[in-house]
C-alpha cells in the first residue's frame, strides 16, 4: 500500500491530512493495522466533540492489547467514520489511508498539524529503525 506523502505522521502511527476544505482527516497507518493484527474493536468519539493535539480521542483494541488513538491537531470533530466505529475492520485493513479514515476535525490552527509530526520519509525511517 502506498503511503500518502501529503499526510503528516505521528510516532504512535496515526496520520493526519489537511483537506481542501480546511478539515483534517485522521486515521492510523497500514503499519499500525498490521501490527495490531487481530482487531476486535474501535471506539471513536462523536461529531461535535473536541480533540486535543497529543491526546487520545479514542481507543483501538486487538486480541492482545488496547491502544490509544492520538490526535495530531486540536479542534472540533465534524465527522466520525461510522463504518469503522465498532467492529467492522474491512476498510481499515484494505485502505488505511482512504476508506479506513477514522475522524475529520476542524482544526483550531491548521499549522499545528506540522508541529512535532513527521513527513512520510521521516515516518518510514522510524519504521525501518523499529524493524531492527
Amino acid at each position: 500500500m502506498a503511503r500518502p506523502d501529503n499526510a503528516r505522521y505521528l510516532e504512535s502511527h496515526e496520520w493526519g491530512r489537511l483537506e481542501g476544505d480546511g478539515t483534517v482527516t485522521i486515521g492510523i497507518t497500514d503499519f499500525a493495522v498490521d501490527q495490531l493484527n487481530d482487531l476486535t474493536f474501535v471506539d471513536l468519539p462523536e461529531a461535535g466533540d473536541k480533540v486535543t493535539k497529543g491526546e487520545a480521542f479514542g481507543e483501538i483494541e486487538s486480541v492482545k492489547a488496547v491502544s490509544d488513538l492520538i490526535s495530531p491537531v486540536s479542534g472540533e470533530i465534524t465527522e466520525v467514520h461510522s463504518d469503522v466505529d465498532g467492529d467492522d475492520f474491512s476498510a481499515l485493513k484494505t485502505d488505511a489511508f482512504g476508506k479506513g479514515w477514522l475522524i475529520k476535525v476542524k482544526p483550531d490552527n491548521a499549522d499545528e498539524l506540522n508541529d512535532g509530526t513527521k513527513s512520510l520519509a521521516e515516518y518510514e525511517k522510524q519504521l525501518e529503525e523499529e524493524a531492527h
Binding site: F41, V63, V66, G86
Partner: peptide, 8 residues
C-alpha cells in the same frame, strides 16, 4: 461477556 470489549 456481553459486548464487544475484551476485559484485561
Amino acid at each position: 461477556v456481553v459486548g464487544k470489549r475484551i476485559p484485561r
